[in-house]
Design a protein around this nucleic acid. Structure first.
Lengths: 231, 231
DNA sequence: CGGAAATTTGATCGTTATCAAGCTGAGTGG
DNA sequence: CCACTCAGCTTGATAACGATCAAATTTCCG
């Protein structure tokens, strides 16, 4: 539960400041919040914080992949999001985190103090504006996911998932999936069996290839988009 | 598509300024944004804006109930949210609305210019802070809905829905549901038949009573909470 | 009232969950 | 270098929940 290391982020600040958005990766956006942050590392499978922990901080991914998830009392799990380098997370309205954050692969994140946020945004209006953008982006993604979870079929969910991962992983044509089938299932509102079967079916139809369980090659991008159900 | 009337909001400004949150109803929160807004009325079933309309404005509900929804090309629909008096909506990251806003019952809303937002929040930091709160609240609700849509059974969804509507409608013990069964189904990711059958089952078990199709009496609140699947 | 739309109820089907084996591949120790 | 192991993944068989198709009933308005 306790992160292992922490030092000021200034040591790590990105030298070049490209401004293109949406950001892919940590280096894609200048770290406006840098003076506020410290670096924290989490080992694979470790928890950055648990559901119910007090929410004194918020975070940005520096390297690795994390997941945020919620549990029901009987063990059913829903993954809210997979977090890649550059993504912000952990900002919440309540005093306690309403979901857990765990490392899918070994990860480093930058931790910002929530209490310092108010004063900092008053000092520099750009911070407030950028935070605002970030939250609007998160809301937009949330609405896409309502459609996916509420109305899409298993095949459409998996196709949408692969396209989303492809977009995030910058490398075109082939995707590395650091998360387990269980994680994918809990992200898409399906079971591992259904995810696995759908992967197999897509492979059968030559839409994807599976060199290994965690590596997906996109053979027919157009077919995948057709199958995703998005216009 | 075009709203019928528009005049400055100052004529309607709330006289008393209770500060308790979360706000139930329009009067519960002082309208910090009042000087920016104009009042717009929408007739029952009418659209305030459609998916794809350019997003020049954002809104707050003054009276009535609205819904925001998205369509897939084949007609499948997902309702993102039901909007009650006091609720804010329409703030989006893109230049175009990614979902439609329609009146479930005849409604009046206050329309704010998006372009004026930046300058206004600079003038009064309270506005920015409040907007921030509003968006954090929306994100929190979104996470609850991921669990509902991804992992809950039909019965759990309907029970959760009734509890949510009960919370929002301030009147304890009995709820008015202005929306149709189709709307409820598209909100919960179910079909109208399943929603109807689940209502009937809850009635059978004396958890609720249905004086009319759009009026629900809560007979056993504890049972409803058990059935909702929340801890 | 009369007629259309919305809701409820019934019968059946299908997609996805569940239960249950195998399979694969990475790590371990002989 | 090769069994052995164990977790994660795939595949198979069956079941169940909710969808679909269909009809009856109620409600809402003109």
């Amino acid at each position: 539960m306790q992160p292992q290391t922490a030092r000021t982020v200034s040591e790590f600040r990105a030298p070049n400041l490209r401004s293109t958005l949406p950001a892919v990766g940590f280096e894609a956006e200048p770290d406006l919040f840098a003076p506020l942050g410290t670096v924290v590392t989490v080992r694979q499978g470790g928890a950055l914080y648990a559901e119910g922990d007090s929410a004194h901080h918020w975070y940005r991914v520096r390297s690795g992949v994390l997941r945020t998830c919620k549990l029901m009392c009987d063990g059913r799990r829903q993954i809210d999001n997979f977090l890649f380098p550059g993504d912000y997370f952990g900002l919440e309205i309540g005093a306690e985190h309403s979901f857990a954050a765990e490392a899918v692969s070994a990860a480093t994140v930058i931790r910002y103090g929530r209490s310092r946020l108010d004063t900092a945004t008053l000092d520099d209006p750009r911070l407030g504006a950028r935070l605002f953008q970030i939250m609007l982006g998160q809301l937009d993604r949330a609405h896409e996911r309502f459609m996916l979870l509420g109305r899409k079929t298993a095949e459409e969910r998996v196709a949408s998932f692969l396209l989303e991962m492809l977009e995030r992983s910058s490398a075109a044509g082939s995707i590395d999936l650091p998360m387990s089938r269980t994680d994918i299932a809990d992200y898409l509102g399906l079971t591992i069996e259904t995810v696995s079967r759908t992967f197999s079916a897509l492979k059968q139809h030559r839409v994807i290839a599976l060199p290994s369980a965690h590596r997906v090659a996109i053979l027919d991008h157009a077919a995948l988009e057709d199958l995703s159900g998005d216009a």
